[in-house]
């Protein structure tokens, strides 16, 4: 048993140490979304029409900064996943990862170690960002904290695996950046992070419904407001969201392992 977990643990541990030694990563993964939040949140506040919610307090209405906040947390998770996986692109062709690949370690455990590293870092930064929630009037109690923690792990699992799935195929970081702009940022934009599903054109609503990140964000939104007893009617339910997220995570993990196993060094 030890021999199976030892490589996974050591690969996970390396991700953490690398992160700690590259402080700019922490800054860029958290600061950039925060700046987005402040600038875009403030800019769009006046023209934002909040989606309908059900609350014990019927006068409850969300400001845009509050609406946008869960999206920003998911963006931090996305950025963390991207930063955690981009090193695969460089290290696979020359350097560190080559040595890992010729070691007697199955590829599924290499991918799992990398994913667990990504999840840990994402969770760390996500929880750090949760500290802002009370400042904008969201009540985060123990139930919300634990549930959002679980949901963040699930989202980070899916996003890190998606990042790995792409990174294991890439020959250059330029290529990875292109994919990031073409796929990763749009799936975040179209997840309900930036604007609600209600009121968008029919075709766009379909794109958003087919986007797995929509369900991650919905699960996060539901869990964040558990202690405030506010429910959202126009986004997927908690149960459906968790199911979609779990399926997405497993599929991307399987995809990442398959890619890592078939790619030649």
């Amino acid at each position: 048993m030890l021999s199976v977990w030892l490589p996974i643990k050591t690969i996970w541990w390396r991700e953490i140490i690398r992160f700690v030694r590259q402080r700019s990563r922490l800054l860029s993964a958290i600061l950039q979304p925060l700046i987005f939040w402040i600038l875009i949140g403030s800019g769009l506040s006046a023209s934002f029409k909040p989606p309908s919610t059900s609350s014990e307090n019927t006068s409850y209405e969300q400001a845009y900064t509050e609406y946008f906040y869960p999206g920003i947390v998911v963006l931090v998770l996305l950025f963390t996943a991207i930063f955690a996986t981009i090193s695969v692109v460089n290290e696979r062709r020359e350097g560190f990862l080559q040595n890992v690949l010729v070691a007697p370690v199955p590829r599924w455990s290499i991918v799992l170690g990398q994913t667990l590293g990504g999840i840990t870092l994402a969770l760390l930064q996500g929880v750090l960002l949760l500290g802002i929630a009370p400042l904008i009037g969201i009540k985060v109690g123990l139930i919300s904290l634990l549930t959002t923690g679980g949901v963040m792990i699930l989202i980070a699992f899916g996003l890190t695996n998606l990042g790995l799935l792409i990174a294991w195929r890439m020959d250059s970081t330029q290529g990875f950046h292109a994919i990031m702009n073409l796929i990763l940022i749009p799936i975040w934009l179209l997840s309900g992070a930036f604007f609600p599903l209600a009121g968008v054109p029919h075709w766009l609503a379909w794109v958003m419904k087919l986007n797995p990140v929509t369900y991650g964000l919905a699960a996060f939104r539901h869990s964040l407001y558990l202690d405030s007893h506010i429910t959202f009617d126009e986004i997927p339910t908690m149960t459906i969201s968790i199911i979609v997220c779990s399926v997405f995570s497993l599929l991307t993990y399987a995809g990442a392992v398959l890619t890592a196993s078939t790619q030649q060094i």
Binding site: P7, T10, G95, F96, Q98
Partner: peptide, 24 residues
């Protein structure tokens, strides 16, 4: 390998420990 297979952000000792763990 031709390009040293070391993680440059890790210490010498950490690199060796990582390698050891991969080989059980």
């Amino acid at each position: 390998f031709q390009s040293p297979g070391l993680d440059i952000k890790l210490t010498v000792n950490e690199n060796l420990r990582h390698q050891g763990h991969l080989y059980g």
